[in-house]
Structures are given as structure tokens and as C-alpha cells.
Design a protein around this nucleic acid. Structure first.
Lengths: 248, 248
DNA sequence: AATTTTTATTGATTTAAATCATGTTTTTGT
DNA sequence: ACAAAAACATGATTTAAATCAATAAAAATT
């Protein structure tokens, strides 16, 4: 499996697992260009910066800031947040390796939320101005951009639907766990074991539940042998039961 | 204000108010091409069918059907729905004149929901295959398509955020009313009067509330002089108060 | 290793919205 | 214009989740 050339290089954080470019949502505007004739091989260099590391709590950007780059997560986790009127943080979502950040700012050309690293993480960074300039010259690239945008809006749509479906707290959590499993294990073979890089507070916030409620549900799932948790490690014991709960 | 050439023609339904093309979300891929040199003037004809009428309860498409067209509402209202496991209808949203339908099916090339006319309505219809073929030849068109998609994903994002923010039933309804007002009165000067083309059942379904709860909230708003309703006609008396409720 | 801070759990109580129940108004079709 | 069917409203009761409260366990800091 081919990977970005930086894959094997020392980037200062040795214990990082980087995602393969093949699995990355940015791929439409990165890899295809690379694999074309050598004249265009340097094209990506005009807009792509690879593996920019973020330490814990680093802001990739903040809401209201003008758009400069769109990002793809290489390693770690980011959370997307917004501040409410009285400065309460609302978590809008999480981004895991291979997923995009900031692409929804393309229209108003302004970031509409904050993107914050949870633990040490890293991104590839695509400069939008340069990308658009290049895409004017390379029709294929423009087409790939359309591809990237439509794929992303499909994912957003799915997430929207899963949250709009009025559900019990329990089914929300079941759906969330299965969604995590799916997004985190697409690397290798699907696994029922996952590490929660995110705090329960952040998860509760995202799901619109109280921390106490979330805690009770995790305890209940544990008691009912649906999951098994020790610290940040979670094993999903009964995916089918959770599946049934999720779309109850 | 210029309008589509069919605007003044008799289309069988005389009491229909059609939206001006300038106000339509499809505009990026319709009007610009029309106003270019006469050789490309016929280009839109290759993918655009104007003013296809839908009688009440007509399905524009159903979930699972392969994508053929994307639509823009010309008049009336459509609802987007999905069936749950046990055949319960979930309302995912409404589309009013000037808004797009089906554009989110561009990626998997399959419609993911149903689009159903509420009352007599009409759409402009854009054939996707022909559009993509044309856009290969006309780079400007491709750029406009990107524009259209990014604008739309911005709107979707806003809707997502308004629904994910865990709020009371009351604030949900307040936000919904203001959203309706904004989307329905963009025609002329902003008005506080609006006609509910949608049934309260559909609204309750969309907001994830019970019909009884919605009914109570409307009654409460009326009692508190925030709105005034008679049949399907609603007058928003205190937009600021509703605004405060909406982002409480 | 010890202490502070943050994060998570569990119980008791309250509350907002769902559910159950019934009646009224509006719309639709003949 | 009338009957039937939808759609809407309102009261009484139940319930799921929020809130209040108090510990317990992890993680971070010294």
C-alpha cells in the first residue's frame, strides 16, 4: 500500500499512526494528480502541505476567521466546536484520520466553527487559493474537487439524518458507538475494540446529553454485557443489539 | 426583474406565484450560461426542463431510486421524507421556491429520500448526465457547479447546527418560525406574515416533537402575543422575543 | 510519590415532554 | 350544503432525562 512520502519519516512523534493516503477523503485532489505525468507531479506542491503537527488543544482555526486552508486529519483526533451566546462550548462533531476539516467553509470563505486538536494530532493542509488557481488550469482537478465536495455533503447528510431522527438517549449512544467503530476501524479489518480519544464530557456535549445521563447509559450497557470498558478502552461485545437499539 | 421566459405563460395553474430566477439556488448553472454569447445560449436547453408541475402528493422521486435529475422549486412546497424500519415517515426538511432538491444525491448517484409535493407545486428539472457532459466542455459551468454545491453545503451545515444545539421544544419552534419567515419572505420585502403550506403534523415530525406538544406551544405563543394565527395564516408579532427564545 | 485538578459514577428529586384520552375545528369529497 | 375524514387543541397522567448532590477514579502537576 502506497503512502505519503513522509510516512516513514521521523516527525517528532514516533507513536503516531498515520492514515494511508488511499483512505483519506482528500485523496481526490491529492493522489490522482501525483500519479499523472511528471510535469503535473509538482502541482500538488503548490497547494499541499503535508503533516502539520498539532499539539493537544491547538486551534487549527477559530470561528469567524477567513478561510485559508482545508485540512485532512493524518493522525489523532480533532473536535469541531462553536461558542453559544453565553460562551458555552457546543461540540459539533469529531474528525478522525482520513476525514476533512474546514471544507464547509468554502462558500462563505469564512470558518464557521473552531477546530481543536484532542491530544497530539496532525493534518495535511491544502491552501484554498492555490488549489483553486491550479484547478483553473487543470480541469481534472476541478472535477475531483466536485467529487470531494459531493462525497462530503453525502457524509454530512448521513450525520444530519442520524441526529434528526428523534431518539432516546440510549439509542443515540448506541448509534454513536457504532459510528465510532466504523470510522476508527476502517484502517485495518473492522474491529470491535476502540480507544476513546475523546472525553465523555465531549461526547455528551456532542450528543446533546448530560454527562450524568451518558455515564448511566455506559454503565447500563456494561451491565447488560453490550460493551466492556476499562479506562479509555472500549470493546463492543454485542454490535447487533446496539444496532437494533440505534434504529429503534 | 428578469424571469424565466415561461413566467408569464399559462401553465394551467394561474394562482401560482413563481419565484424569480434571480432568487433561485439553481441560478449558478442556469442564468449565467443564458446571458453568455448566443452559441452557448442553447446550452441550458440540453439539461434544463423548466416548470414541471407537481400536483399534491406527487413524488418527485423516492428513496433508493437512481439519480437522474436535480430540481429547483419554482412554486409551492415539497417535503423531504424517509421511511423508518417500521414504515414510519420521518420528515427531513421542507423546500420552498428557489431552493434545491436532490442535489445531495450527486455522490452516491442515488436519491436517499423521498421528495413529495405539498399542495400543487412545480420545479425546474436539471438532467444530471447532460449537465455533467456540458460542464466538461464549459469550464465556467463546472466552476458554477462547485459554487452551487458549496453554497448548498453551507445551508445544510447551518440547518444541522440549528438542530443539533440541544434546545427546548419552545426554542425549536421559535427558531422554526423565524426560519420559515426568512425563507418565505425573501421574495419581496421581509414580511412578518406567512402562510403555513405545511401541516402541523409535518412540522412536529420534522422538529422531533409530538403534535400535542407543538399545538400547546403554538397556543402558548398566541396567548403570550408572540404570534397570531388564524387557520394557516400566521403573523409574527414579536420577532425579537422569538429570536431570544430561539438561541436560549 | 503525593497532591491538585479534571473526569467519571451513582443516587435522589424535579421537570419538560410524551402518552393517553377526548373534544373541536378545518378540510375534503360527494 | 352535508357528511366523513383529517387536522388541531387541551386536559390528566406517566416517563425519560435534567438537575441537584455527593463521591470516586484518573490524569496532570509538583
Amino acid at each position: 500500500m502506497t503512502q505519503c512520502k513522509l510516512d516513514m519519516e521521523a516527525t517528532g512523534e514516533k507513536n503516531h499512526k498515520y492514515i494511508a493516503c488511499e483512505r483519506c477523503a482528500m485523496q481526490p485532489i491529492c493522489l490522482p494528480v501525483k500519479t499523472q505525468q511528471s510535469t503535473t507531479l509538482s502541482l500538488t506542491d503548490q497547494y499541499l502541505a503535508k503533516r502539520t503537527p498539532s499539539q493537544k488543544d491547538h486551534y487549527l482555526f477559530t470561528q469567524g476567521q477567513p478561510l485559508t486552508d482545508i485540512f485532512a486529519v493524518c493522525s489523532g483526533t480533532y473536535k469541531l466546536t462553536k461558542l453559544s451566546k453565553f460562551n458555552e462550548e457546543k461540540v459539533l462533531g469529531f474528525r478522525f484520520p482520513g476525514e476533512l476539516i474546514g471544507e464547509d467553509a468554502l462558500h462563505p470563505k469564512t470558518y464557521t466553527h473552531n477546530a481543536i486538536a484532542i491530544g497530539d494530532s496532525s493534518v495535511c493542509r491544502v491552501n484554498v487559493d492555490n488549489l483553486l488557481a491550479c484547478s483553473q488550469a487543470v480541469p481534472d482537478l476541478q472535477l475531483s474537487l466536485v467529487e470531494l465536495l459531493t462525497r462530503q455533503s453525502f457524509i454530512s447528510q448521513a450525520q444530519f439524518e442520524s441526529l434528526i431522527a428523534k431518539k432516546s438517549a440510549e439509542s443515540l449512544v448506541a448509534a454513536f458507538l457504532l459510528n465510532l467503530k466504523q470510522r476508527l476501524s476502517s484502517n485495518e479489518q473492522p474491529s470491535n475494540e476502540l480507544t476513546l480519544s475523546i472525553s465523555k464530557d465531549n461526547i455528551a456535549n456532542f450528543l446533546g446529553l448530560r454527562r450524568e445521563t451518558l455515564s448511566r447509559i455506559f454503565s447500563k450497557f456494561q451491565k447488560e454485557q453490550l460493551i466492556q470498558q476499562s479506562k479509555k478502552q472500549i470493546i463492543i461485545l454485542a454490535p447487533e443489539t446496539l444496532e437494533n437499539m440505534a434504529n429503534s
